[in-house]
Amino acid sequence: MKIGIIRFPGSGEGDCLEAWRVVGEEPVLIWHQETSVEGFDLIVLPGGFSYGDYLRAGALACFSPIMSAVLRFAQRGGLVWGIGNGFQILTEGGLLPGAFLCNAQLRFLCSPQYLRVERNDLAFTNQYRTGQVIQIPINHGEGNYSISDDGYRQLEENNQIVLRYVTPEGEMSANGNPNGSRANIAGIVNREGNVFGMMPHPERVMEEIIGGVDGQGMFLSILKHRERRTQHGA
């Protein structure tokens, strides 16, 4: 599978690169000043602090030259996966709706977090069960997902909410919500299902020795999706 990871100044692409290697893939790093993503099967916008989070997290990165190419790639149906800062870039660039505010408690959060998988019919989640509770760490200062009432209604109507912050029992309560995100939203997809953004970091739970393997499902889902498409001659 041909996987491209976009590197912005300040990106933390190393964890993501290593995670793909755990499942046997060798991604290509693409510098943000490049202008083409032709020939790739998946583009990953990794976590980190692109442009030092100056102005607003993700705001400056979405005007990098590579982002026009990523936008065209997404419009043609290419798979785009934004993790952490990558999700912030996707919302700033208008590929996904909503925006991010400072965490409600104003603290930078770096801790394990329970999530509930809300749908498993996607390229990114087909190796999980719907309703499955998984543990994936969060690591952000601005993860408080915000969206207008209308925007939220559309997310619900189009079934675009993929991951929610929950308690260990899988309950979507205020207790399970670490950062104040609207309706405990941790990850959403576009209507077409090919652009996925999530704040938690699955690339950091790929091996038991570093604390868990719940993140593997995302990577394996994408590989499975690719395999199915190849079998169907796509």
Binding site: L55, A59, F63, E92, A99, I147
Partner: peptide
């Protein structure tokens, strides 16, 4: 385009 995010 840049200095403000019209969403919020």
């Amino acid at each position: 385009k840049l200095l403000a995010n019209p969403v919020m």
